[in-house]
Design a protein around this nucleic acid. Structure first.
Lengths: 377, 377
DNA sequence: TAGGCCCTGGACAACGTTGTCAGGGGAATG
DNA sequence: CATTCCCCTGACAACGTTGTCCAGGGCCTA
């Protein structure tokens, strides 16, 4: 029996939404309920047994239960067995909130990044998680969406949860709001971009050097008019990479026409417009340096459709870039995450050194697109 | 002045590791310390002000501070100002651990998935995060690495933290260990694969239907010998997709040679071996259906180097697949996450319905590789 | 002017756990 | 047999917050 609303919706019909008899659930497009189970009953929600309950059932004291749960010594095998049975029977699970309150440490760290859906941050986050796991800590993720206010909101929420440490990929430029937190003992490491107006550990890729190398690579292959398309100028890496571009051009004694340079959103439409601009006119660029993975993707799409081949080097590696023959400056996202997390945990382990800035080197991967010579060469 | 160890390491020299004078930090490959800041002093770590401190400073009662912090009514503007000033001055931040202990809700949910570095799970996780954010909750991530024990360990750790809800992409097949948790009120939704031996909400992609459609597509283009390379047989989606493959073959009245079918790890070596196997011999397959994104990537690499074109359809979309002309069965990872999270929060909002299984439809994206006709056709 | 009501503020207990400390009982020793 | 010592166990306070409840004071009304 179809739900009336659903059956009258052409969209729903077209996509063959079925519902089993019973409660009508709001379905979004393309969603189909294929089975329902028996209704759950007898649930006394939110009423978990505590150590006190376990103690009562096992006929022992509260502290003895605590000892068993934490594997502390000084409990007779027989007593331990009784306690274990009671735990089993009641389905007891220690409440870590209370534990945290008492002990002061949460065994969790926070990671604030730009967007977890970006293929650059997935591996970074995973690397952080692995290090955290090795130290017995859980990871709380948050995406700032490149919004400084949201970054701050997230960071402070994590501090309120009393994470032991923080790893932040900054969206904003002023992190003084973190000063009281850091003073209070929240270890903090910034990644990918430096912290703003605050002394803290920073782990970066060498954006300047990488971009310089990439552009020099294009110059070495004969290009003299090279375009640069980067992310928004308030993002540190975007500016550094542009600086690398300019340095390489200057190293080679090449002039830079400002129409070849474009910093702005990585939105495909914007990138396309910028590229079209620098590829038109009497003196078009013969090569493009793409400032990050999203720009590279758009550039590849765009350049693939052109008659005159345009050389391309991109910052950041991309999946399948080898098959497409895209030359890139690769940075190791996982290494960034790992390095930052290791630094963080060394701090948590009590190592107290001055905050430092660490840079990881990048690597040029020549795959074809960067070795295309300029037309007529 | 170089650290002795570093300067004697050829690798380090080659990669130009420099260190500023001062504390020698253990550096990993390609890591360079480019700056150090002044040593921090005067830190009384782990000694944060409490509401009591704020109250004392503001000359009010403890509860009044609580009221201000939580925006509760019943505080004179003047009193509120005094309290705010004290909060400001002391750098007070509410301890949510204590709050959680008192209130019983953590405003956080847990997400256990396979691997955050997998491009399929990044968008899924992000989608969950967005829904969580809309409900004022934080997200704790964990990667099970496809290991049932690790999954259980993670899930129980999250339960111990008293997350309000759980979203799990199962690695194991038996989730009875979750029964006490669910009974105790931890809302749980499974995604991508069904829960094992337990009644719970499940949100899936239509793996069976998707694979069937993909294979039918190959058959429609003239293929009669089609290979299937999938993930390990203990993974539900792998089995479902294989089932879809068999159904499509049967629909068309085509026999299936078991040498064309391979379930196993997605390790490139294994996939390559399996593909080589089914592409050799007197009656090689003329088309391959790849069971997930990792298999597809390996298959593309492998097939790109062959003389005789082999048709390919892959399950899961991949970045740049459009440029490479790879035909895929796309599932919407973000929609999976969003749907699951929305279901979860409806439960948390007190809606009590029977657990249900929801399926999202997939979409065939024809881009070329799946439309290659068999040789001689 | 007296009574009552509302508004503000604070004292206190409770959330579930862990650290401290002290008591009791059994074994070993004089 | 008495004493000492050690091992096991449990009572109690404390972690920092919020919910409950009550007191005091100001204002309005009869």
């Amino acid at each position: 029996m179809l739900d009336a609303t659903a059956s009258h919706s052409p969209k729903a019909c077209a996509r063959n939404i079925r519902q089993v008899p019973g409660r009508a659930l709001p379905t979004t497009t393309g969603q189909r309920i294929v089975a329902e189970f028996a209704r759950r009953t007898d649930t006394r929600y939110g009423n978990r047994p505590t150590m006190k309950d376990v103690a009562a059932r096992a006929g022992v004291g509260l502290k003895t239960v605590s000892r068993v749960v934490n594997g502390e010594p000084g409990v007779t095998p027989d007593t331990e067995r009784r306690v274990q049975e009671a735990i089993e029977a009641l389905g007891f699970r220690r409440n870590d909130s209370a534990r945290v309150l008492r002990k002061g440490r949460t065994a969790s760290i926070g990671l604030v990044l730009e967007d977890l859906a970006d293929p650059f941050y997935g591996p970074l986050s995973r690397a952080v998680e692995e290090v955290a796991r090795a130290h017995g800590a859980l990871l709380i993720n948050g995406s700032s969406a490149e919004d400084p206010d949201r970054e701050q909101e997230l960071v402070l929420a994590l501090c309120a949860r009393r994470v032991d440490g923080l790893i932040v990929i900054p969206a904003g430029h002023d992190h003084r709001y973190l000063e009281p937190e850091i003073k209070a003992g929240v270890a903090t490491v910034f990644v990918d971009r430096p912290a703003g107006r605050i002394d803290a550990d920073v782990v970066l890729s060498d954006s300047f050097g990488g971009a310089r190398e990439g552009v020099a690579h294009l110059i070495a292959h004969g290009h003299r008019r090279i375009g640069f398309i980067g992310d928004q100028p308030r993002i540190h890496t975007a500016v550094e990479r542009l600086r690398g571009y300019r340095a390489a051009m200057e190293d080679a004694g090449l002039p830079v026409d400002e129409r070849w340079v474009s910093l702005g959103s990585t939105d495909p439409a914007r990138v396309t417009a910028a590229a079209e601009e620098m590829l038109s006119g009497p003196e078009p660029v013969t090569a493009v340096f793409a400032g990050n993975n999203r720009v590279t993707v758009t550039a590849v799409r765009l350049l693939a459709g052109r008659d005159v081949p345009v050389a391309l080097v991109g910052f950041d590696d991309i999946e399948l870039a080898d098959l497409l023959g895209i030359t890139v400056i690769a940075q190791d996202a996982a290494a960034l995450g790992r390095t930052a997390a290791e630094r963080l945990f060394r701090r948590l382990d009590g190592v107290s050194e001055a905050p430092a800035q660490v840079e990881l080197t990048t690597k040029l991967l020549a795959r074809g697109s960067g070795e295309v010579p300029p037309p007529g060469a």
